[in-house]
């Protein structure tokens, strides 16, 4: 078997294989995120379309969404994006403790965002009497889109917890840590989707 110009066959084979496999997985994962973006875009299109067909938005009898709390909750989620970024940076520089702290902070902030979302849902349902199926296109689009996003955050929190346990168990090394890159990509994706959802639901 030719091994190219690599001196140590075994060593060379593993690293070349890792590099090529990593590239495949990276592209595949990014394409998966692209298709997820399309999924969100379709629902966003549906929301904007329904909103556009109605004479008034929000429909009569429904109050505007509370911008203040949403801004607070958004900052919680955006903050988790920053901590995730620094978690990966720390890992790249071999600072494990710093990495673990940042990752735990990310998980906590993500969970806090979910709690905030739960608080907002409860508020809407109990005080404003807005529900998924009983409030026309408003409830349908708002709860479907934010619920879908919340589900992605939930999956992300679980995913990051698994990554934390895996990295404690020594699955990743300083050179080979594609799982962490993928986790960071996913978490950033979840953040960035929220930028769009926050803008279209609360700001316009």
């Amino acid at each position: 078997m030719p091994h190219g110009a690599v001196a140590d066959p075994d060593e060379g084979q593993v690293d070349q294989l890792y590099a090529e496999t990593r590239q495949l997985r990276l592209q595949g994962f990014l394409l998966f995120l692209v298709s997820d973006v399309v999924l969100f875009s379709s629902f966003i299109f549906a929301y904007l379309y329904l909103r556009n067909t109605l004479p008034a938005w929000p429909p009569p009898g429904i109050n505007r969404l509370d911008v203040g709390f949403a801004a607070f909750n958004s900052v919680v989620l955006f903050g988790s994006g920053v901590t995730m970024h620094y978690a990966l940076e720390s890992w790249k520089h071999g600072k494990f403790a710093r990495y673990a702290n940042f990752l735990i902070a990310t998980i906590v902030l993500g969970a806090a965002f979910l709690a905030g979302q739960g608080y907002e849902y409860t508020n809407l349902y109990m005080r404003e009497h807005v529900s998924w199926s009983g409030s026309g296109a408003f409830g349908a689009s708002f709860f479907t889109l934010t619920g879908m996003h919340g589900f992605h955050v939930f999956v992300g929190v679980c995913y990051l917890t698994v990554l934390l346990l895996q990295s404690c168990a020594g699955v990743y090394t300083k050179e080979k840590y594609f799982g962490l890159t993928a986790g960071t990509l996913y978490w950033h994706f979840v953040d960035v989707i929220w930028v769009v959802l926050f803008s279209i639901f609360y700001l316009i």
């Binding site: 592209q27 801004a71 955006f78 953040d191 929220w194 930028v195 700001l203």
Partner: peptide, 29 residues
């Protein structure tokens, strides 16, 4: 490739944070 994507994401994150700030200030929404 991964870092190029990270940069786009960080940029959008900054945009989102600015939007949230403006919303908190009551300028937007």
């Amino acid at each position: 490739l991964d870092n190029q994507v990270f940069k786009v994401m960080l940029f959008l994150l900054a945009v989102g944070a600015v939007l949230a700030t403006l919303a908190g200030l009551g300028v937007l929404g």
